[in-house]
Design a protein around this nucleic acid. Structure first.
Lengths: 337, 337
DNA sequence: CTGAAAGCGCTTACAG
DNA sequence: CTGAAAGCGCTTACAG
């Protein structure tokens, strides 16, 4: 910590006052004679004094640090989300610690431990996995509780007893598939993630319900489950391409999946929207840029992060406020039909 | 900081030893009788004791926290860079504080202040601006010095007296433009950023030198300076499109610029590579996916972040090691000619 | 191998 | 309005 940092003691000495007084002007915590205040301020400025956040939080027993845990910082969805979080932490003079989990429970739990050791003031939490077994669930629940700080769960609604903010993926998929059907599509494929994850289950449910409610019979061959990575979607699409009866529409359930799907079909000379109507969950910005029409479900990750952080600040201010579960709409952007 | 956190005192009491002993087993810092060690460890485990990083760093006078300052977390280039950084901090049990500056000197300087107050162990620094006037330069230099921690400058080589790691953009642009010329191109346009920034100047120089060395005369009409945003590139490209004599090749100097360029030309029905040979600085992944051939200069942001963090760790370990300036190659990926 | 004590840089009752 | 003192949760010489 810098051998030679200027401390409150140095300032007190040079200003000819006690540390308590310096502390008071630092915190505006009590009336200080205007002259001494100015003088102390001068001495601080002259010495470019920077009070130690560490000492401060130890003494005050509250830190000014917020934690955020995401699965992949290098995925643009999370980059935008973090940007939303950071804009609010900045505005509130809070410091942001970032953790990346790679969808690994181990790393997730480790991040939780690390953040606890830092006694963070609050956490924005996008869980690495669903923690669906009782044993797993108990583990996170316990760690989250021991964190001793409020947490806002985002993106993946895995049933934690904390404030949360999520997208209404069920509705978005339901509506978009319904629209497809209304426009004559019957052979509709979906490339989704493993059904072990809520996120994927909700999307799947939206798909199934839309089909059922419209009386369209499901074709098992058109249902693909991967792991939301580009590679897996690419491979699944290769399977899809082998089918004798090709679907007329394909729902791709996250941004990487859309990419894998597009890669596979463009490779064999097929195109969107000519050969398939593609409904992409998450905008694929580049398609808009190239003027390639497609249909997408827009999730505003920036808003997600921003609102989550605002909610966290509220919760810190009003610990007793009733639990909040916020559902953000993910509008269906229809462009090709 | 959680009213009811378990402290070293609690553990010491329950284990029937002194705090010093608990501390010793915590840090493996001195020989402790094997039996007492085990016992203390048990008590810690039983109580799920998590030592306070705050108290620790205050006492030890070193923190385990690293800072990273980037211009835009939500730009994929920086997302990937941060990912590189985080992979290394994780491996070394270091904690990462993230700051975003929006290319604003104010926010940059403010971030530096904040990180100083946290007494960070080291900093990965992508400067918000060039700090090109003497006064500005003095200001950052001073703040960086007062930080009292090693810093590794990345991405923007603004002439700071610290370790640094950058891409060889000059060479990459020079080579790609030379290749263009060798393949018959003469009317070559460039959309670059304002020449107030080194990054843009180096790229421009690579362009100019390649033209000059090949004896091709420059056409002022083909040189555009924007601000590296998609909007500005879009507008500049609209200007370009108005020219009677269209260029045959266009160099776009960052990822947002490439997007703005593509948007503008696709809007009027022009395409890549049919109507222009496009050399893009930074890969535009989606083009590869759609099987649209183009030429690009690849900067591996992940490697940049990773190596920067590794260098920082080295520097922390060997403060006296000679200053390191590392230049990473940015290979030219030729696909269309 | 172990403990008592001082110290890290702050804050905050308590007294005056 | 101000200062002396205790305390936040650790670590680290120093003694034994």
């Amino acid at each position: 910590m810098g051998k030679n940092n200027i401390t409150i003691t140095d300032i007190a000495k040079e200003a000819g006052v006690s540390k308590a007084t310096v502390s008071r002007v630092l915190n505006n915590s009590a009336a200080v004679d205007e002259k001494t205040r100015k003088h102390v301020l001068d001495v601080m400025k002259k010495n470019r004094y920077s009070p130690s956040a560490t000492a401060r939080s130890l003494s005050k027993q509250v830190s000014s640090t917020i934690g955020v845990i995401v699965p992949e910082v290098d995925n643009n969805f999370f980059g935008e989300m973090i940007r939303g979080v950071i804009d609010i932490t900045d505005k509130n003079d809070l410091t942001l610690i970032c953790c990346n989990t790679d969808d690994s429970a181990d790393k997730d739990l480790k991040a939780l431990d690390m953040l606890k050791s830092h006694r963070i003031r609050g956490l924005i939490y996008d869980p690495a996995i669903d923690y669906s077994t009782d044993k797993e669930k108990k583990k996170v629940t316990q760690k989250l509780k021991e964190l001793g700080a409020p947490v806002v769960v985002v993106d993946r609604n895995i049933g934690l007893n904390h404030d949360g903010i999520f997208f209404n993926d069920y509705k978005a998929v339901y509506e978009s598939v319904t629209a497809l059907i209304e426009n004559g599509h019957r052979k509709i494929a979906i490339i989704n993630g493993t059904q072990e994850r809520v996120l994927a289950r909700e999307r799947q449910q939206g798909f199934m319900d839309a089909m059922k409610d419209a009386g369209v019979t499901l074709c098992e061959d058109y249902i693909f489950f991967g792991d939301y990575s580009m590679d897996s979607a690419y491979n699944l699409t290769k399977e899809l391409l082998k089918l004798n009866e090709q679907p007329t529409a394909v729902v791709t359930c996250n941004n990487q999946t859309s990419k894998g799907f597009l890669k596979a079909i463009y490779e064999v000379g097929k195109k969107v929207p000519k050969d398939y109507t593609n409904i992409a969950l998450d905008k694929v910005g580049m398609l808009n840029i190239l003027g390639i029409p497609y249909d997408y479900i827009e999730r505003n990750a920036y808003q997600l992060g921003k609102k989550a952080m605002e909610l966290l600040i509220q919760r810190i201010a009003f610990p007793e406020m009733p639990l909040q579960k916020i559902i953000l709409e993910a509008p269906f952007m229809r462009q090709t039909f």
